[in-house]
């Protein structure tokens, strides 16, 4: 497979993350970085999922998010995970990712700054509870948020509607 072909496959989302990448943090992220991450995916439908290793419902929904990503990758869904674990829990985050190998990139919230400001910048209606997911359409416009575990069936219907609109 030539380099051009591989590049095209990445551009059109046909190639999932490499195994190693799945099991590592994609980096640290703050509000500006998160906005950039969403902006980089413009043209795709983006679901940002906030989670933590200590959050039982987050851990429970992780496999279903991976499956959601796999089912809709070619159509243009991009899931971005953000761990909100404390800095001291970073080893636990890395261990979790190594074990779960999610089908989407995951960042760790950058330490420092105003915690409330981060929460408010993500969504003014968010109170910090986890899991929490925010859905963006192909233009990068925030469509809606989900507090608690994602209702996969109804959320996927909504995602597919967004994927169908160009």
């Amino acid at each position: 497979m030539g380099r051009a072909t591989i590049a095209l496959l990445f551009i059109f989302g046909a190639v999932p993350l490499a195994g190693d990448a799945r099991s590592r943090l994609a980096g640290e992220i703050d509000v500006a970085g998160l906005r950039e991450a969403v902006a980089r995916e413009r043209g795709h439908v983006v679901l940002v999922n906030f989670w933590a290793t200590w959050c039982v419902p987050c851990r429970e929904e992780f496999p279903s998010l991976s499956r959601l990503q796999e089912r809709n990758r070619v159509a243009g869904l991009r899931i971005v995970g953000v761990s909100t674990d404390f800095e001291k829990q970073r080893p636990a985050v890395e261990k979790f990712l190594a074990e779960r190998r999610p089908a989407f990139p995951n960042y760790h919230r950058k330490k420092g700054g105003d915690d409330q400001a981060f929460i408010d910048a993500v969504d003014p209606s968010w109170g910090g509870e986890l899991p929490y997911s925010v859905l963006f359409d192909r233009s990068g416009r925030k469509v809606r948020s989900f507090s608690g575990k994602l209702p996969i069936a109804s959320a996927e219907r909504e995602i597919r509607k967004l994927l169908a609109s160009r």
């Binding site: 915690d115 929460i119 109170g127 910090g128 509870e129 986890l130 608690g148």
Partner: peptide
């Protein structure tokens, strides 16, 4: 008033 944040 401030917005409380935390676990549900």
């Amino acid at each position: 008033m401030t917005k409380a944040f935390g676990c549900s």
